[in-house]
């Protein structure tokens, strides 16, 4: 239930501009790290659709990340080249199909049982790949080339070049963000946000609630599949760890830390978590403890995560004029995206 206020919109645009410029000045190491962060961001935004908007607490979201990666690896492990378009279609359909299956069963349960079911499914996939020699077992599968994006017979962009890959992932991140913003403003988005707020009332108002939950689950799973596909293409390998519960846990921490129900919050969360993982070990070998402490502090003192902090700051800095603007607008514009969080 957040609107992008003008200051935050400006902040996000500046952030994207900074990401566009970064490879011109940054080291190769950080270009690589940012690629990882942006892929993780896509993964986290997709989970935010479930946790922050639909009210489905999935603790097995890594399953789809892994399915995306494995789809690429399994179909192209012996191939000399990877046709991006074919790979994309395969990844989209496999992750959507698996999400449909997992979601169809899981949404029958709610609350803590839903959490358990999603976790159990992810663990099943984990052990399936772990114990399948055909699919690399615990070593995983290596890929020897990057996808080629061909239009006709000319290559659109050479992904073997790390900078190109960086811009490719950046474009995906922005696109996924925009697609989800669009979906949330559309009638579908209004329904799922209402489901999160009060499911039985939404049903009583005439909506087949389960169907909306399932579609939301499939969209989120498919987008997570794209993230896994990008990760596999970037690193050149997949292992069962892609679908482990550790991965599901990390992405959930990212969403909560960044601020659920905001879409951009999880992106900030991914940056903060990965950069902390990168910086903290320089100061102390007990950095994991410190990391835990930071997460606890954020949850306690910033209940709406980093995004919530930004809202509070921007409200304080840009005073009451913004409020006036918003209240004028919201007269004609309904639901979800248009309410300023009142408690902030």
């Amino acid at each position: 239930m957040y609107t992008l206020t003008r200051p935050i919109l400006i902040f996000l645009c500046l952030g994207v501009a900074a990401l566009v410029l970064f490879p011109l000045v940054g080291s190769e190491f950080y270009v690589g790290l940012l690629i990882r962060i942006m892929i993780l961001s896509i993964f986290a935004i997709s989970l935010d659709l479930l946790i922050g908007y639909t009210g489905l607490i999935s603790f097995g979201h890594a399953a789809f990340f892994g399915i995306g990666g494995y789809t690429l690896a399994i179909f192209f492990q012996d191939a000399d080249s990877i046709n991006f378009w074919i790979a994309l279609v395969l990844v989209l359909s496999c992750s959507a199909l698996v999400a449909l299956l997992v979601g169809w069963i899981s949404i029958r349960a709610s609350g803590v049982y839903f959490i358990m079911l999603t976790l159990a499914f992810a663990q099943m996939f984990y052990y399936f790949f772990f114990e399948s020699p055909d699919f690399g077992g615990d070593d995983g599968i290596f890929l020897f080339s990057k996808p080629e994006i061909l239009i006709g017979s000319t290559s659109l962009i050479d992904l073997e070049d790390e900078h190109n890959f960086y811009y490719f992932v950046l474009a995906w991140m922005v696109a996924v963000y925009l697609i989800l913003s669009m979906i949330l403003k559309a009638p579908f988005g209004h329904v799922i946000v209402a489901i999160k707020a009060n499911e039985s009332r939404v049903r009583a108002l005439g909506y087949p609630v389960q169907r909306y939950k399932l579609v939301s689950f499939v969209i989120a799973g498919t987008l997570a599949g794209i993230a896994g596909f990008l990760e596999a293409a970037h690193t050149g390998y997949v292992t069962p760890a892609y679908l482990g519960w550790h991965e599901s846990g990390i992405v959930m921490v990212i969403v909560i830390l960044g601020g659920m129900g905001t879409l951009f919050g999880p992106i900030l969360g991914a940056f903060v978590i990965v950069l902390l993982q990168d910086f903290l070990p320089n100061f102390t070998e007990h950095w994991q403890l410190l990391m835990g402490g930071i997460i606890i502090a954020v949850v306690l003192f910033l209940p709406k995560g980093i995004a919530g902090l930004l809202y509070r700051l921007s409200n304080r800095l840009f005073t009451s004029k913004e409020y006036a603007d918003v209240s004028q607008n919201s007269g004609d514009t309904p639901a979800t995206v248009d309410v300023r969080e009142q408690s902030l």
Partner: peptide
């Protein structure tokens, strides 16, 4: 939310509500 429920379906993803 009540009013929108009278659409033939709210499975619409593109145009803003």
């Amino acid at each position: 939310v009540g009013a929108q429920s009278r659409l033939s379906s709210s499975m619409r993803f593109i145009r803003p509500a």
